[in-house]
Design a protein around this nucleic acid. Sequence first.
DNA 1: ATACTAAGTTTCAAATAATGAGACAGAATT
DNA 2: AATTCTGTCTCATTATTTGAAACTTAGTAT
Lengths: 273, 273
Amino acid sequence: MWRWLLVVVGREVMGVVATDGTVGKALSVLDQVASMGRPVRLRELLETSSFPKPTLYRFLQTLTNQGMLCYDPEQQTYAPGIRLVRLAHSAWSQASLAPVARPHIEKLASSLREAVHLAQIDNGQVVFIDKRQASTRFATLAQPGQVAPAYCTGIGKAILAFLPEDERDHAIQQQAFLQYTPNTHTTAQALLADLKAVQVDGIAYDREEHEVGIISIAAPILTPSNRVVGAVSIATATNRYALEELEAFRPALLDCVNQIGAEAQSWLPPSLP
Amino acid sequence: MWRWLLVVVGREVMGVVATDGTVGKALSVLDQVASMGRPVRLRELLETSSFPKPTLYRFLQTLTNQGMLCYDPEQQTYAPGIRLVRLAHSAWSQASLAPVARPHIEKLASSLREAVHLAQIDNGQVVFIDKRQASTRFATLAQPGQVAPAYCTGIGKAILAFLPEDERDHAIQQQAFLQYTPNTHTTAQALLADLKAVQVDGIAYDREEHEVGIISIAAPILTPSNRVVGAVSIATATNRYALEELEAFRPALLDCVNQIGAEAQSWLPPSLP
DNA sequence: ATACTAAGTTTCAAATAATGAGACAGAATT
DNA sequence: AATTCTGTCTCATTATTTGAAACTTAGTAT
């Protein structure tokens, strides 16, 4: 409960709320609108917001003026604006490792005929940067940007395990530890034990922790200087493969991440707070 | 020259610069970084920025803290951050008309075997929301978010022609009128004359105005209340079709936009300033 | 129709945060 | 070793943000 508030008001940095002044507050409002998943009214935002009405109102006005939000006068609702789409295009093509990784992801996906995902971490959440599904042609587009919890996905654990200690601790504090399935880790302790194993093995598994029937094997993308910049996962369903059978994908997966890591050499690590 | 400054410093609203306070300034810095197309250093930004060094520095810090920018400590460069990708995913799926339009775009593209584009307008620029190329399988992904000038593209003119007068005038003021090809309109007068014809005809053409060899036919997406919320274009090359032959696409194109317009009924017009 | 309620908007003085000249530190270059 | 250039920090000044309260408008119930 309290954690939610912290996240909304400002980005929590090492346990301390860093509001980043007015800009941070405005961006937290932007996040809130985006997280609603549908156009929302001022009143709805007010319920969960920590800002008083006029302040929230002013932020919405400003963000709308700026094109970061889109206001529907008839419904009096706010939704994320197109300017974000424009900005994200730049982000995708320069900031993320997607362009570098894409050919490797594609190769892996088509050789295995399984879904291959590329993700980075942002503020404790897994953000999918690219997805490839060789089996189903014309799979879902526009999936880049989707988010998932880090603590109960293979791709999330692969990244968490190889983060520097302070960043990892911070990220773990941000996890919600909701129990999605009987296999979900619900405590930091359980997660840490799992991460320990991942560190040793170099590979993370999703043992139906996020969704029953879905399993995955994931590996971190490490730069030559051993910094983790993302992860790749191969996801499949239990009716196609047993968990143990995923082991067979290990060599191909490690090949893939190693190649990406090498090419990402001259690359910018996502600078998390 | 001066216009550029205005755009950078704040969003120009009806000829007056609306800085939107600190938030607007910070976002203008974000835009500037994104528009550079590659990771940039503080010094480079300083050259074109109107902010003094410490101020710019602070904005970059704030935006980085917020995950809107990504800082590479080794190169000391800033690039757009992943948080944008996450936010844009929300924007794409709720704010844009992409989800509504997608099936229609797809149908059109596959029936014609030509490239079909969906775009909206943001701050005078065309922002592509979706693209479909039936001919080349596995065409470029992550194109949503790309921008193009409005005054010399079919899709841009289709939107401009049907904007309310004040918004159109404002948008026209924002055009750069660079001469890309011999056919490019280089004055507001020439553009207005063209738009007049588009209003009458209901269809806009790109007569190799942006790129030699590339032509297109475009139509606005109008809501039942006759508000333009975007446009669809069919683009092709002069070595495949002559400009006059595009006329043959008219019925299919109008069908497409009418259907999208009808479904977008309950939709939020992009609230431009 | 009229009163009532709730959501959205505006006002304005107090509180707070942003500002930028200048100083400083560190790296790269001469 | 001296110089230059870039990035970072400080702090008094200045301008902006803030939010309680008042006001307006739209919707609902009486």
